[in-house]
Amino acid sequence: MGIELVNRPRLFIAMLLLWPILASNSSAASTTDLPVTLIAHESVNLDKLNTSTLRAIFSLRKRSWENQTPIKVFVLPDNHPLHKHFCKTVLKIYPYVLRDQWDRVIFSGVGTPPTIVKDIEELRRTVRSTPGAIGYAPAEISVSIQQYYATTPTGL
């Protein structure tokens, strides 16, 4: 190929430095301003959850609720605006960092990966019908449905 990169350190260093800068753009994040709230199966008490516990649940470290029901995490696809919004405002984790954590779990077998459902409606339905389930929904939808024990966690 004749591309003797190592022979030309200055060229290479220039490439290293300039590539990301040349490629950068304003990349305005397309987040929604929708308030997001946690939803869970009626068997689950969301009252006492703080950011740290929520991170342990959504990072798949914590596996069961206090009443010994197994935790089942349901989420929307990575690129769904509500998922991104939930990661940033509730978990305070970049979505790609959470994805990296999940992929480490999936491909090393050290936990139960979250179940991805296709839209908000399916997420609500699945969480309502699955004991131990936790997920999220736009705030105005969840408060209008009485079956949910929906709340905004304290300390966020």
Binding site: R63, S64, Q68, P70, F107, G109, G111, T112
Partner: peptide
């Protein structure tokens, strides 16, 4: 090429393989 499975028997016991 890899295929893996994980299975939760109960709260404390999980199985996984690839």
């Amino acid at each position: 090429i890899g295929v893996n499975a994980n299975w939760r028997l109960n709260n404390s016991l999980n199985f996984a393989g690839q």
